[in-house]
């Protein structure tokens, strides 16, 4: 059998190439860029976006869209902070907000399916709803001081590398728990997408909902499950964000859903649904992260350059996808 890159893998391969190029470029341009610390931070700093983006991937694969991500993440962070402030045990608080996120997603999914309404509008409504609820929980930023956050979660970090600092001291670098969550979510989601009936049904619905229905795919159940999963992962992203920020804030993460969508699309998933990979989203999140890192290293550039770079990249990738799907149609 002769080897060739299947057409469906081309966008993913292109994204991976961009990631490698950006990383190589950073290593050449900046001294400290080769440090393993850069890679570890890349995973740690982007863990909450990444977790939420995995949820968004399922939604987009199914042919839908979820605009409530940022608001649900913010609602989750402030809820966790408030629950801990009221003396709720940390594990109970986390489980509670995860269940809440899943229920919220299920609610949106149910409306979308049952009333046959466009996901864009329903999740837009969900966005305002969750954002408002966040302010109802607590109107401003709330710090988290519970020892569970500082010590327990901090202690879960896994040592992965040793570096020698300029002063000659050997320092151990650890992979934070947030990054572990992100990687675990990517792994489980990849398996779910490729190796379970649910995963394949999501692709089928995204590619052709009417055919999927005639082929006996449980369309409604799958759709509701997709939004439930997205709500759950948004909440998990929120929990991860509280580990990262040690606080909750109802006004935070405005527009996070758009970052998530950008990461999904840059990762090679078609916005029309049916084609894409969870691993692509991992690559997409890392590309967004590495652009941010490069601009931080440059130092003299305004952070808005991140947005400009992401915008340009997004446009290029969307055009690439269009060109590929045109070629395939012929």
């Amino acid at each position: 059998m002769k080897f060739r890159v299947p057409a469906q893998l081309i966008p993913l391969a292109a994204s991976a190439a961009v990631l490698v190029l950006l990383y190589a470029g950073g290593c050449l341009a900046f001294d400290g860029f080769t440090s393993p610390r850069v890679v570890i931070n890349l995973f740690g700093d982007n863990a909450f976006v990444g977790v939420a983006a995995v949820g968004a991937t399922f939604v987009i694969l199914s042919g839908g869209i979820d605009l409530s991500v940022g608001a649900v993440v913010a609602l989750t962070t402030i809820s966790v902070a408030a629950l801990l402030g009221h003396g709720v045990p940390p594990l109970a608080a986390v489980l509670l907000v995860l269940a809440g996120g899943a229920a919220f997603g299920a609610f949106l999914g149910f409306i979308i399916h049952w009333f046959e309404l466009p996901p864009f509008l329903i999740t837009l409504g969900g966005m305002f709803l969750a954002r408002g609820l966040g302010f109802m929980v607590h109107p401003e930023s709330l710090g988290i001081t519970h020892p569970f956050y500082g010590e327990t979660v901090g202690g879960l970090a896994i040592p992965v590398a040793h570096v020698t600092t300029a002063s000659g001291r050997v320092q151990t670098l650890t992979l934070p728990f947030t990054a572990q969550c992100f990687l675990a979510v990517v792994l489980v989601a990849s398996v779910a997408a490729k190796w379970t009936r649910f995963g394949r049904n999501v692709y089928a619905i995204g590619s052709s909902e009417s055919s999927a229905r005639l082929m006996g795919v449980p369309v409604g159940k799958t759709k509701i499950l997709v939004y439930t999963l997205a709500g759950f992962l948004s909440a998990l992203g929120g929990v991860v964000a509280t580990f990262y920020m040690q606080s909750g804030n109802p006004a935070s993460f405005v527009g996070l859903e758009l970052d998530a969508i950008a990461a999904v699309v840059i990762g090679g998933t078609l916005l029309r649904g049916g084609v894409g990979f969870i691993s692509g989203t991992l690559v997409g999140v890392l590309i967004l992260g590495i652009i941010q890192t490069l601009i931080n290293f440059k130092g003299d550039l305004n952070t808005w350059w991140t947005k400009i770079a992401i915008g340009g990249l997004l446009l290029v990738f969307i055009m690439l996808q269009q060109a590929l799907s045109r070629r395939r149609r012929e």
Partner: peptide, 29 residues
């Protein structure tokens, strides 16, 4: 078999034939 091809364009031929009746081990395809 319908007039229009009622299959999933983006999935493989194998999946199109087996969708909804895939055999699984421990829930994995």
């Amino acid at each position: 078999v319908y007039q229009e091809v009622n299959l999933i364009p983006d999935l493989s031929v194998a999946e199109n034939i087996c969708l909804g009746r895939q055999s699984t081990t421990f829930g994995l395809l």
